[in-house]
Design a protein around this nucleic acid. Structure first.
Lengths: 204, 204
DNA sequence: GCCCTATATATCAACCCGATATAGGATGGG
DNA sequence: CCCATCCTATATCGGGTTGATATATAGGGC
């Protein structure tokens, strides 16, 4: 599933410009899919070439002229086929968790800042879902699927927030001072390599 | 934070080859970061150019000769600096949730298959974290940070599993037969466009 | 002997991400 | 009234990632 498919899907909700689609993705899919202009405009151009969408140019009352895209019948069929065919992956790419993994290399101040910031972002995203609850606020009657996806996002983020709140204090254990951990890091060379061998590292 | 940084971080645990790093990422970061050979090998080559890692070539007892990489002192410093500087993003890219959003366009059979499959995959990933619980099984004593990251992943995935189990039946509501929804889709054009206008779509 | 798996490195096209360029209209403070 | 700023809107580019593929050897199972 690429951005082209996502554009087809969004256009099942009605005609839209590339700019509209970006906003729609940000509001409705922010918790599960991201797409920028650099993906959307090329995707729409290709879809038009393939006759899966049609475009009409409307002189813009504000700014440049707008290209309003419309899902064709073959586009709708193509999207349904894609929904059937794509295997539903679910990937997470979290710099946050990577940083957490290396918490023992971080000064406590930075650690706290990272945790606080992530809590704050979780709050923002939860508020965003509430604000655009499946499109309700914008006059759309949400489908059961949209409600399910929003609820899923909220449940997962709430769990993340709870986990951070109840476990962040475990991170400080065994790290009284920063000097200590730094010294440990220097003398950890041999032991670390021995452990690595057990794991399959450097097994010459 | 890119794959180069991730490689530096992994090498703080001990020397490793590109192949080792891939396995390490799969075992330890599978729930928060993915990196394939196409990213790892170029990353290691660049890191070697920048003198952040050193490499020694060892004749392989099985297959081609191995290039074992070692974190240099400046590499360690660079990694610590990156840990301080990178803003901790957390992105989710979920074809699964996109498909769920469009559940009303799917036949019930496919819907069930997608949900069952995602539950199965959650089970696999949870088992993977348990198996490599922060590296314990491989003889590493896990750091508090590694335990935190693993626990985070488990908490989030458990919440996802619970949500699916308790809410999957809401998806069928208002969708008694497949024919009905298909007919609705065809006659939905005007209503959909009206809703779109309310939302900011096609507001000429 | 043959196939499959595991080890190990490397490359490539296709694609995605984030930043940037461009530009007209609305808004609002000084 | 002017200027700064934001919003609308399209488009492109470099750098990075993904996923597949090529290559080569050792070992286990049948």
């Amino acid at each position: 599933m690429d951005v082209k498919d996502l554009c087809l899907g969004a256009l099942t909700h009605g005609d839209a410009t590339g700019y509209d689609l970006k906003k729609f993705f940000e509001n409705t899919f922010s918790h599960c899919f991201l797409a920028g202009y650099g993906s959307i405009y090329p995707a729409l151009a290709e879809l038009e070439d393939e006759k899966l969408v049609s475009a009409r140019t409307v002189p813009g009352h504000a700014g440049p002229s707008r290209k309003v895209y419309h899902l064709t019948e073959s586009g709708r069929k193509a999207f349904l086929a894609r929904l059937e065919a794509t295997e539903p992956q679910h990937r997470v790419k979290s710099e946050f968790l990577v940083i957490m993994h290396f918490a023992h290399l971080l000064p406590p101040k930075r650690l706290d800042a990272v945790l606080d910031r992530h809590l704050e972002e979780l709050g923002h995203k939860l508020a965003l879902i509430d604000a655009y609850e499946c499109g309700e606020a914008a006059g759309m009657k949400p489908t059961p699927g949209a409600r399910f996806a929003c609820g899923f996002g909220k449940a997962v983020m709430a769990a993340a927030r709870d986990y951070i709140r109840t476990h962040r204090h475990d991170l400080a254990v065994g790290k009284k001072t920063n000097n200590q951990s730094t010294r440990q890091a220097k003398t950890r060379g041999k032991a670390s390599q021995a452990a690595s061998r057990n794991r399959g590292y450097t097994n010459a």
